[in-house]
Write a protein that binds this DNA or RNA. Structure first.
Length: 409
RNA sequence: CGGGGUAUAGUGUAAUGGCAGCACGAGUCCUUUGGGAGGAUUUAGUCCCAGUUCGAGUCUGGGUACCCCGACCA
């Protein structure tokens, strides 16, 4: 992509209404645009990052045997009333009416819809287990939005639902999801710990949150680095020793980025989603649900990976893997840079080519802000030696590489 | 929803109740090119509605929007 054509205008100043690091940098780098409180557009750069995250999550869900589907956002009031959540769900639903005055709640989570789908199709233990997921916008009527993408009213969420013939089978799958989630966070360059949690209005008896460690995170967690125990400080108080192995605990800031629930038979009982078991008896389907907020995850990544100049994306989620800059308007430089750009594209390297007529300082500042992991500079200085300057975003030093030996992977 | 705060040009900021200014951006022209370049020139603004006043960006009342703390959450 030629940066001169990219739909993106970086800002020199931090937005005055932003306080969290991720909000500041994502707005300055023009990854996102705020439409209203807690409502954001993803611009081309931000959307590319979002797609990378989405693909990582999709791969891990598919590895679990999950099948992707897509559920509606307009969910009839009647369905919510089957579980009583029309009134009780928190944060409340966005309620809308159609022209015939029929009422709907915009989907904030999809247990009712998926359970309805399942009860129409599952009749035997032979249909189980089953795992279905979607990546879709959720709408939550939050009291207030905070911290840019950290808490919003409309957001992209991956929600996975699993269906089992027994509690034991569910818990085995539940553990697999746990490790898949940890893998997702790891692939996004994040350290996450699992803590026990309250299940709120989603319900169920067991639930765990995934806390992503970030210095600027608002939640405080206690971690035992010897046995892996983790807990939300709000839930357990100021413990000094690990309750499992008595090692000293460390206190860290974190951002809640995922939440998984053992729902048991809460929804299948309310909505009569039953199956016929081996023993010939009709039983409620045992369910689990598992969510990750993609926008919040993106924000968490920025919170964990930035410096005073901007974002530092990991290659796995960067909008582009290389940022090529040409310095100066000299024809030789332009021609050579274009040649390198063409070659990289032919090798299917995702490259952003800064061909704009801007001063070197501005190009460097933008490159640091946008945070693409590898920076390539073509200038009079480098051309004299037949080289390109290669610098990693997370390293100080740059090196010169012969143009014909340039290898970006 | 309770508490606190803010609102001036695309962005960031000035202006005792007295001509709305500056910087960046954007447009045109010239020069410049290794860490947000220089000159010339152009462009664009007081959140909304009332009130006080000779005169309101500024004071008063009401509204709206946004931000922060609380609560809850992915």
């Amino acid at each position: 992509m030629r940066q001169s054509r990219l739909f993106s205008k970086t800002k020199k100043e931090f937005p005055k209404n932003a306080e969290t690091v991720s909000h500041k940098y994502l707005v300055r780098g023009d990854f996102i645009d705020q439409l209203s409180a807690g409502i954001y557009s993803f611009l081309p750069l931000g959307f590319r990052v979002y797609k990378k995250i989405e693909n990582i999550i999709r791969e891990e869900m598919n590895n679990l045997g999950g099948q992707e589907l897509f559920l509606p956002t307009l969910i009839p009031k009647k369905l919510w009333e089957e579980t009583g959540r029309w009134k009780t769900i928190d944060p409340p639903l966005f309620e809308v009416k159609d022209r015939h005055k029929k009422e709907y709640g915009l989907g904030s989570t999809h247990e009712e819809v998926i359970t309805d789908l399942i009860r129409k199709r599952i009749s035997s233990y032979q249909d189980l287990p089953l795992a279905l997921y979607q990546i879709q916008n959720k709408f939550r009527n939050e009291m207030r939005a905070t911290g840019g993408l950290l808490r919003v009213r409309e957001f992209l969420m991956k929600d996975l639902y699993s269906f089992h013939s027994s509690e034991k089978d569910l818990m085995e799958f539940y553990e697999k999801v746990k490790s898949a989630y940890l893998k997702i966070f790891k692939r996004c360059g994040l350290k996450a710990i699992v803590v026990e949690a309250d299940s709120g209005t989603i319900g169920g008896k067991i639930s765990h949150e995934f806390m992503v460690l970030a210095e600027t995170g608002e939640d405080k967690v206690l971690i035992c680095f010897s046995c892996g125990f983790g807990a939300n400080i709000e839930k357990v108080g100021e413990l000094k020793e690990c309750p499992k192995c008595q090692s000293p605990l460390e206190k860290k800031n974190a951002i809640e980025s995922g939440h998984i629930f053992n729902l048991g038979i809460k929804y299948s009982r309310d909505m009569k989603a039953n199956f016929r078991d081996k023993d010939g008896k009709e039983k409620p389907i045992v369910m689990g649900c598992y969510g990750i907020g993609l926008g919040r995850l993106m924000a968490a990544i920025v919170e964990a990976h930035h410096d005073e100049k901007g974002i530092i994306w990991l290659k796995s989620i960067a909008p582009y893997s290389a940022h090529l800059l040409d310095l100066g308007n000299d024809k030789k430089i332009k021609t050579e840079a274009q040649e390198i750009y063409k070659n990289l594209e032919e090798k299917e390297v995702e490259v952003l080519y800064d061909d704009r007529d801007k001063s070197p300082g501005e190009k460097f500042a933008d490159a640091d802000l946008i945070g693409i992991p590898i920076r390539l500079v073509v200038s009079e200085k480098t051309l004299k030696k037949g080289c390109v300057e290669v610098k990693k975003r997370d390293e100080e030093k740059a090196e010169l590489v012969k143009i014909n030996k340039l290898n970006v992977q």
